[in-house]
Design a protein around this nucleic acid. Sequence first.
DNA 1: CTATTTGTTCTATAACTTGTAGAGCAAAGG
DNA 2: CCTTTGCTCTACAAGTTATAGAACAAATAG
Lengths: 130, 130
Amino acid sequence: MILNVDLASEVPIYQQLRDRIVEAIADGVLTEGSSLPATRSLAADFGINFHTVNKAYDLLRQQGLIRLNRKTGAVVTPTAADPSFHPEWTARARTLLAEAVAKGIPADEILTTCRSVLDSFGTTLPEDTP
Amino acid sequence: MILNVDLASEVPIYQQLRDRIVEAIADGVLTEGSSLPATRSLAADFGINFHTVNKAYDLLRQQGLIRLNRKTGAVVTPTAADPSFHPEWTARARTLLAEAVAKGIPADEILTTCRSVLDSFGTTLPEDTP
DNA sequence: CTATTTGTTCTATAACTTGTAGAGCAAAGG
DNA sequence: CCTTTGCTCTACAAGTTATAGAACAAATAG
């Protein structure tokens, strides 16, 4: 699994890690039961501190996307219904969509972009999970 | 204009202000030429520091959504084409959409939500601009 | 012209966040 | 038993957030 993280970005590293892993799950690169690298080894790969990876994994756990076990490591969980997710997500989507509208992008073009992004998910074959 | 800002939120106040103003522009509550409140008076309304409002206005100016003039104050600018906006926005949309997909929301439901949010914009009549 | 309103810029400070660092504990598995 | 792994603790430097006050600069209103 290749995670595209920019150490020089203004976006916090732990946030980028979280985002890339969420996208990998949406993409189908990571599926239910897939193991994520151990915090220390992923940290070593990027040349960052393992506490930073820990923080990203902790966010994903809080969001219910992965489960963390000692020895077994981080594992992608089956998707569970979460009633509080939809309204909270919609509020964030509203802000993002408003930004595009305010910049003068036509609503149908915005929707088309969303559709093509959604279509791009799941087209990637899952990697072998060791 | 009523801006819903939560001082106790973990989201920075200047960010919330920016978000609410962007949404007001998308909504049509603020249109080209609309004046925003003066930094000091808006700060007084919320009981916050005027530097915080200043930061929000500065973000909006950087994004090309408002123009700041001495004496005249902050004014909503006509929307101008911005070639760097679309790809940058799409990247952020990708992360947000991935989150919904990873949480198991079906793609068509996500699109429907986006469509209804977009439809909700522009249905509000512009306020009088004094 | 003068006075006022408004954005702009400067310094300063306290609290919180980010990322690094190291030590050590705790449990699951081979 | 022992290794691997998550987890927790303390600590530190650098940056961000929000507050605070002072003063400058330009444009408008009277």
